[in-house]
Amino acid sequence: MTDRPYVVLSAAMSVDGYLDDAGAERLRLSNDLDFDRVDQVRAASDAILIGANTVRRDNPRLLVNSDRRRAQRVADGKPEYPVKVTVTRTGDLSDDLRFWHVGGEKLVITVDRAVEKVRAALGDLADVVGIGPDLDWGLVLDELGRRGVERLMVEGGGSIHTQLMAADLADEVHLAIAPLVVGQPEAARFLGAAGYPGGPAARMRVLEVRAIGDVVLIRYSPKERV
């Protein structure tokens, strides 16, 4: 059986747990130093995954921005950019989004019934694969493992973080805590309601706590609950 990738969930959030506010413009939570740290984590990854809702809402490029880091990847025998992966149940993706037009290889993982819809929408902009009648995260990781992905960085959104944490499939969590309070119930949160392994009393092991300017990075090991 092919090994699944090591899964790192990465998010910047407010002190009260929000990934964004409810406004039309993206709320800047991280600072420049933390954005550079995220760039390093991307450069160390074989693939970066975000959900289709995040692709549509944020229209991200999702790149390794540092020339030096990209050059080091090539020197190490890797592609210049990690594979960019998105997952979708509906297949509602547009070919005009920036995600498809910059960087290296792109992959869409979807349910079988949406495969032809995505291929018709994207053409040769991305490889498209169906994994069955439902979006099973174990099967998603199996597919990535078969493709040689050893380290996967997951950048959201909140529903994907929630699903992976609830399924006990996250190996590390990187949280950048910004000195902001959002306080808007309709805004997106890092984690939602779910049945998490071990229940509310299970404590994760802390791997690192570090101040990065006015942001605090906390790294957790969610599978090491006690």
Rank of each mutant, 00 (worst) to 15 (best):
T2L: 10
T2N: 09
P5W: 05
P5E: 10
Y6V: 14
Y6M: 13
Y6E: 15
V7E: 08
L9G: 07
L9C: 13
L9P: 07
S10D: 05
A11T: 08
A12R: 02
M13R: 15
D16S: 14
D20Y: 10
D21V: 01
D21A: 07
E25N: 14
E25S: 11
L29A: 07
S30F: 00
N31T: 14
L33I: 07
D34E: 08
V38H: 05
D39R: 00
Q40I: 06
A43N: 06
A43S: 02
A43W: 03
A44P: 02
A44F: 03
S45K: 08
L49Y: 05
L49S: 05
I50S: 01
I50W: 00
I50Y: 01
I50H: 00
I50A: 04
G51C: 08
N53V: 06
T54L: 09
V55S: 09
R56C: 12
D58S: 11
N59F: 02
P60Y: 02
N65S: 15
S66A: 01
R68K: 15
A71Q: 14
D76I: 02
G77Y: 00
G77F: 01
G77A: 00
K78Y: 01
P79D: 09
E80L: 03
E80Y: 05
Y81S: 11
Y81C: 13
P82N: 08
P82F: 09
V83R: 12
V85Q: 00
T86S: 03
V87E: 11
T90K: 10
D92F: 08
L93M: 09
S94L: 15
L97H: 08
R98P: 00
R98E: 04
R98V: 03
H101L: 08
G104T: 02
K106S: 09
K106C: 14
V108D: 05
V108N: 02
V111M: 07
A114I: 03
A114C: 09
V115M: 08
E116F: 05
L122M: 12
A126Q: 11
D127H: 14
I131P: 13
G132K: 12
G132E: 10
P133I: 03
P133G: 01
D134P: 13
L135H: 04
W137L: 15
V140Q: 04
V140K: 08
L144E: 13
L144F: 13
G145C: 15
R146A: 12
G148V: 04
R151T: 10
L152K: 03
M153K: 03
V154Y: 10
E155T: 02
E155P: 11
G156M: 09
G156Y: 10
S159P: 04
I160S: 04
Q163W: 15
L164C: 15
L164P: 08
L169N: 04
I177R: 01
V181K: 13
G183D: 07
Q184I: 04
A187F: 04
A188H: 12
R189Y: 05
R189C: 00
G192R: 14
P197N: 07
P197Q: 02
G198S: 06
P200F: 09
R203W: 01
M204L: 11
R205L: 08
V206N: 11
V209W: 01
R210G: 04
G213P: 00
D214R: 10
V215W: 00
V216D: 02
L217W: 12
I218S: 04
I218L: 15
R219H: 12
R219P: 06
R219Y: 13
E224G: 07
E224R: 15
V226E: 13
